[in-house]
Amino acid sequence: TYTYKLTDEEASRRAEDEWRNRGYDVRVRNNNGTWEVEVR
């Protein structure tokens, strides 16, 4: 499981799409203004 911490929502969406396209399960959540993109 990888977790990315990003401050930019758009960057988190791009990361989400990119990993999803590669067949990974992705979750995005906002934690106090930081976007966490979790990849498994």
Rank of each mutant, 00 (worst) to 15 (best):
L6S: 11
S12L: 10
V37G: 00
S12T: 11
T3I: 15
E9L: 08
Y4H: 06
R22D: 04
T3L: 12
Y2H: 14
W19G: 01
A11V: 04
T34I: 14
R13T: 05
N21A: 13
N32V: 03
N31I: 14
E18D: 10
V26F: 00
Y2N: 09
R22M: 11
V37K: 00
R20H: 05
D25Q: 11
R20T: 08
N32I: 02
T3N: 06
E36Y: 14
N31Y: 10
T34V: 15
N30D: 07
E18L: 14
W19Y: 06
E36D: 04
D25N: 08
R22N: 06
W19L: 07
A11K: 05
N30R: 09
E18W: 15
R40Q: 08
R27K: 13
N31P: 02
R20D: 02
S12M: 14
D8W: 04
D17M: 14
W35I: 04
E38R: 05
R29A: 07
R13W: 06
G23M: 01
T3A: 04
W19F: 08
R14W: 07
D8R: 00
R29C: 08
R13C: 05
T34E: 10
W35A: 01
E16G: 09
G23H: 03
D17G: 08
G33L: 02
T7A: 15
K5H: 14
E18G: 05
E18I: 13
W19A: 04
G33F: 02
N30H: 12
D8P: 00
V37H: 04
E16V: 14
Y24W: 06
T3S: 07
N21Y: 05
N31M: 11
E18C: 15
T1I: 14
W19R: 01
Y4W: 08
A15L: 15
E10S: 09
E36R: 01
Y24R: 03
V28F: 03
T1E: 11
N30Y: 15
K5Y: 15
R27D: 08
E18A: 11
W35C: 03
A15V: 15
E9P: 06
R40D: 05
N21Q: 11
V28D: 01
N32E: 10
R14E: 10
N32K: 08
E10M: 10
N21K: 15
R40G: 07
G33S: 03
W19K: 01
S12A: 15
V26L: 00
D8N: 11
W35H: 01
K5E: 15
D8V: 03
T1Q: 09
E18H: 13
V37P: 00
W19N: 02
R13N: 06
R29I: 13
D25L: 09
G33P: 02
R29D: 04
G33V: 01
N21R: 13
E9G: 05
D8M: 03
V39H: 01
E10K: 09
Y4T: 05
V28A: 04
T3V: 14
D25T: 09
T7P: 15
E36K: 00
R40I: 11
K5R: 10
Y2M: 13
Y2G: 07
W35M: 02
Y4F: 14
G23W: 01
R13F: 05
E18S: 09
D8G: 06
G23V: 00
Y24T: 03
Y2S: 09
R40C: 13
V37W: 00
V26G: 00
V37E: 01
R22A: 10
R14H: 10
N31R: 10
K5G: 08
E38V: 12
Y24G: 03
T3R: 07
E16H: 06
T34S: 10
E10R: 07
V28C: 05
V37D: 01
R27F: 12
R13D: 04
V39G: 00
Y24P: 02
R27I: 15
A15K: 10
T34Y: 13
S12F: 08
T7M: 14
E36S: 04
N32G: 11
E9Y: 11
E38L: 09
R27E: 12
E16S: 10
S12W: 06
D17R: 14
T1D: 13
A15Y: 10
L6T: 15
E16I: 13
K5S: 14
K5D: 13
Y24K: 03
V26Y: 00
V28S: 04
T3M: 10
T34W: 12
L6H: 13
A15M: 15
D8Q: 03
N32S: 06
N31K: 08
W35R: 01
A11Y: 05
G23F: 01
E16K: 05
V39A: 02
V37Q: 01
E18K: 11
R29F: 10
Y2A: 11
N30M: 11
T7L: 14
R14N: 08
V28Q: 02
G33A: 03
V26W: 00
R13L: 08
W19I: 03
V39E: 01
E10W: 08
V39R: 00
R40F: 11
R22Q: 09
S12V: 15
R13V: 07
R27V: 15
R27A: 11
R14A: 11
V26I: 04
A11R: 04
D8C: 08
E9V: 06
T1K: 12
L6R: 00
E36C: 13
S12E: 03
Y24L: 04
R27L: 13
E38M: 09
E38F: 05
R22C: 11
A11D: 08
Y2C: 15
E18R: 08
R20W: 03
Y4M: 10
E16A: 15
A11H: 07
L6W: 09
T3F: 11
R29Y: 12
R14T: 08
R14V: 11
L6E: 09
W35P: 02
R22P: 02
R40Y: 12
E16M: 12
V26C: 01
Y24H: 07
E38K: 04
A15P: 02
T1L: 11
A15E: 07
W35Q: 02
E16R: 07
T1P: 09
A15S: 06
R20G: 04
R27M: 11
G33R: 00
V37S: 00
N30W: 12
D25K: 07
E9S: 05
A15H: 12
D25W: 09
R13G: 05
E38H: 06
K5P: 11
V26P: 03
D17N: 13
A15R: 04
V37R: 00
T1W: 15
T7D: 14
D8T: 13
N32L: 06
Y4K: 04
R20E: 03
R20L: 08
T7Y: 15
D17I: 14
T7V: 12
R14K: 12
D25E: 14
D25R: 07
T1S: 14
R14M: 10
N30S: 10
N31A: 08
W35N: 00
R20V: 06
T34H: 09
R14L: 11
G23P: 00
D8L: 03
E9R: 05
V28H: 02
Y2W: 15
D25P: 03
N31L: 12
R20N: 05
V26A: 04
T7N: 13
L6K: 03
G23C: 09
V26D: 02
A11N: 06
V28I: 11
N21L: 12
A11L: 07
D17T: 14
E18M: 14
V39I: 12
E10C: 14
T7S: 13
E10A: 13
W35Y: 07
D17H: 12
V37I: 13
L6D: 07
V28K: 02
T7R: 11
D8A: 03
Y2P: 12
V28P: 00
R20M: 06
R40H: 09
R22I: 06
L6G: 09
T34Q: 12
R14I: 12
D17A: 14
E38T: 13
W35E: 01
V39W: 01
G23Y: 02
D25A: 08
A11W: 05
R29T: 14
R20P: 01
E38G: 01
W19M: 04
L6N: 06
E36W: 13
E10P: 07
T3G: 05
A11P: 02
D25S: 08
E9H: 06
E9T: 03
E10N: 08
K5N: 13
V28N: 00
T7E: 15
N31W: 06
K5M: 14
L6Q: 07
E10Y: 09
R29H: 11
N30E: 13
N21W: 04
D8I: 03
N31S: 08
